[in-house]
């Protein structure tokens, strides 16, 4: 099947095609899901190299589960985000004890027009603030406000109740706001 013809095909169906030996399905899934998995793991870990490792590992697990995937039982993205979260948790546990000073600085994006610079600065500040949150709060806030998932799907990914998701995002946002407000002067930004 040509690659552009696969744009309309669901993740589920692509995974079944891949399991049946379709090389085009592998390419389509790689291009569709790897950027999302990488972005999510970066937001949870705050480190590009680690995020790439997690993304590759998570995708490898997807390839391995493909022959056993039962279509329609679960969403591929829900399963994949859960895998990413577990892999990130493992890495964060191994690195536990690392102080805030050693949290890696997010990589600077290429400077562009003023708007892009503002956005880049905000994204960088947010990423640093996210790293100060407890893991579960960070995960819930990222899924809800950056990845754009709805609470029921976040509950499914995190395997908790919707009420627990609401509680985590509310606490996470309060902590983020406090962290960002406290770092205005340090980061050199001022309200306009």
């Amino acid at each position: 099947m040509p690659l552009d013809a696969m744009d309309e095909v669901t993740d589920d169906a692509l995974l079944v095609l891949y399991a049946n030996g379709d090389a085009g399905a592998a390419r389509a899934l790689t291009l569709r899901l790897t950027p999302r998995v990488l972005a999510h793991s970066y937001r949870l870990l705050g480190d590009r190299a680690e995020a790439e490792d997690v993304a590759q590992d998570a995708m490898m697990r997807l390839w391995k589960i493909a022959p056993h995937w039962r279509q329609g039982e679960a969403k591929v993205t829900t399963w994949l985000y859960r895998v990413v979260a577990n892999l990130c948790t493992d890495r964060l546990r191994k690195a536990r004890g690392v102080g805030l000073d050693t949290i890696p600085e997010p990589a600077d994006e290429t400077p562009g027009p003023a708007d892009n610079m503002v956005d880049a600065a905000r994204a960088k500040a947010l990423q640093q603030a996210l790293q100060t949150l407890p893991e579960r709060q960070r995960q819930a806030v990222v899924l809800r406000h950056i990845e754009g998932f709805q609470n029921p799907q976040i509950a499914e990914i995190m395997e908790i109740s919707v009420e627990a998701v609401e509680s985590l995002t509310a606490r996470g946002k309060r902590a983020l706001a406090a962290e960002l407000a406290g770092r205005r002067d340090e980061l050199g930004y001022y309200d306009g």
Binding site: R43, Q56, M60, K64, A120, A123, I146
Partner: peptide, 29 residues
């Protein structure tokens, strides 16, 4: 505003990473 900014500023998957993921897919296939 920070969340909006972060949505547009995520890291891009490098060609190298995509190639590695695709190679894994081919191996498993």
């Amino acid at each position: 505003a920070f969340f909006d900014a972060a949505q547009g500023q995520g890291p891009e998957a490098s060609p190298d990473l995509l190639a590695r993921v695709l190679a894994d897919a081919e191996d498993q296939r």
